[in-house]
């Protein structure tokens, strides 16, 4: 397969269509869960609730990236190259939440 620039194609599973629909239903269900939880926890205010929603968001993101964006079938290093830098964002976000809290305190 050396004839053109891309070489051995990363293998697409034969049941790709099936996987796509499965992922769609997972995402659908997760969004319903999101909304359901929102109404169940309407009157609670805790950081835990926020973490729950963020975790659900990350699970959804995982399915979108892994199946829809084909990441599950890519080479390990491409996955690392794209995923690990996002840790900087996590760092930035955590620090900025602390900082925002502090800003509210001194305002």
């Amino acid at each position: 397969m050396e004839h053109s620039e891309h070489l051995e194609h990363t293998e697409t599973p034969s049941n790709m269509k099936q996987q796509i629909w499965k992922t769609f239903w997972i995402l659908f269900a997760l969004t319903i869960v999101d909304i359901g939880l929102y109404f169940m926890l309407l009157s609670t205010h805790s950081m835990l609730k926020n973490f729950l929603f963020i975790a659900l968001g990350i699970v959804k993101a995982f399915y979108i990236v892994a199946v829809f964006m084909h990441m599950k079938f890519e080479r390990k290093w491409l996955v690392n190259f794209i995923v690990y830098p996002m840790l900087f964002v996590v760092f930035l976000v955590i620090l900025m939440l602390i900082e925002g809290d502090f800003t509210g305190l001194v305002r």
Partner: peptide, 18 residues
């Protein structure tokens, strides 16, 4: 979104809606 988080966290949350 970080800017959003920052500003959001610099304000207290609302009372729950009953």
């Amino acid at each position: 979104l970080t800017a959003y988080g920052f500003i959001r966290y610099s304000f207290p949350s609302s009372q729950p809606n009953e």
